[in-house]
Design a protein around this nucleic acid. Structure first.
Lengths: 241, 241
DNA sequence: CAGTGGTCTAGACCACGAA
DNA sequence: TCGTGGTCTAGACCACTGT
């Protein structure tokens, strides 16, 4: 049943758990490990691939394989309050003017090619990227200034800017999917672990979409949190659709 | 930059997109594809691995490689209403009595080993598993009957049973993570695509945890949806939806 | 049984990083 | 330069599926 590489992976897992190598420490070279296990290098590498995907091992081309530090997860809390911003994350912001792609046009319910402002927030814990948030606001909804004060990893500053110009968000829908990272994303996060993608649209009281956001999180270092309060009533209310 | 296997993968991607093979149709054997591309079989296989992880191709040991049918995603809508879900999903239920593991004890805020009821809902679209939901209710909160009527893929029947015995859920917290499937999960979902894991705890008005749920979704065939309404002071109570 | 994918070997050469 | 991981080859044998 269990192939050679799975057996080796399990053995390495236990060695790491037992502390044979400390966090951040370098493993023996692949050729050396292969000879230790009397396996070929491709076989040993497929074992390491498992550990890498699990987040136990980090590979560096030309340097070696290292035991990953089990750092805490970054939490994207949808019901976050503006006061308690996540700590210890360095946030960088870029602002661009762009035209709506077909996908964005559909999300924002505008026509493709319409002008919009893109805010891109990238947050880092140390040197590891913890989130990428791209927020889009059509020009016809508002022309935004540059945010002041501390930056939120999730781009909450954009909502503040909207409020400042009289645009109020009444509801938002968030769609969460999981997939493997593209080549670029794999390089950005330095990990082949799956990514959590959050696609958010925010609407004002009239139902007009005033903001769309694409949030990307490394699945092995982040999680999404939602808290909902049930309205305690009879629950027979049908919704349209 | 692009290795041989990535080039082959890209070519196969385009051939599939162009309709060289229909959905559900079998691809040529790996040995044949390898000779077509003048590549070794391991190289060709790593190209197929990419397509499989992307959900474009399904592999069957002993039968062949097939183009996957792009079926619609199953949506886990957190703000769902129990009455109006007409999912074309077949749902199976198993009920067990068990003792709380350490992890469950922590979630349910009870002591490890305490007795609880486990409801396991498995939903299928055709032959493909779309969700696994395991719900846990401590005996000291309630002893549940067997649910009647149609089964919800997300185990909402448990909440109905709780309501029936006078236990009302006031709020719930859902924690969403993404990871690669374990060997068992990979076999269950018949896919190495990442899984979406939802960990939910529901509390009554006193803050006591009355239910914990572990929900597992195949990342390439399911998504999670959240809708939140921003609290606006001036309005009385949210009326629509 | 024949045909398929799953795994493995024992090498080889290339690309990258640090000294 | 040298040691590292990244990729590739051309076979081989095993396990599974359907006839």
């Amino acid at each position: 049943m269990a192939g050679r590489y799975q057996t080796i992976a399990e053995d390495l897992r236990q060695l790491i758990a037992a502390g044979n190598w400390r966090a951040g420490e370098q493993l023996p070279a692949e050729t050396e490990l292969a000879s230790l296990y009397r396996a070929s290098r491709p076989t040993l590498r497929s074992a390491l691939d498992l550990l890498q995907a699990e987040g136990l091992v980090e590979k560096f081309h030309g340097r070696g394989n290292f035991v990953r530090r089990p750092d805490d997860r970054t939490v994207y809390d949808s019901a976050r309050h503006t006061s308690d911003r996540p700590p210890a994350l360095r946030v960088k912001l870029e602002i661009r003017q762009a035209k709506a792609s077909a996908a964005l046009a559909s999300l924002l319910q505008i026509h493709a090619g319409a002008l919009l402002t893109e805010h891109e927030y990238v947050s880092l814990a140390g040197t590891s990227v913890r989130s990428v948030a791209r927020l889009y606001v059509p020009h016809k909804v508002a022309m935004l200034d540059c945010p002041e004060g501390p930056l939120s990893p999730w781009g909450d500053n954009v909502r503040d800017l909207l409020t400042a110009v009289g645009v109020h968000v009444a509801s938002s829908a968030e769609r969460i999917t999981s997939r493997l990272p593209s080549a670029e994303e794999r390089e950005l996060f330095r990990s082949p672990a799956p990514v959590l993608a959050v696609e958010r649209t925010s609407m004002d009281t009239t139902g007009q979409v005033v903001e769309a956001a694409l949030l990307l999180l490394p699945g092995d270092r982040a999680e999404v949190l939602f808290t909902t309060h049930t309205h305690v009533e009879s629950r027979g209310k049908p919704d349209d659709l």
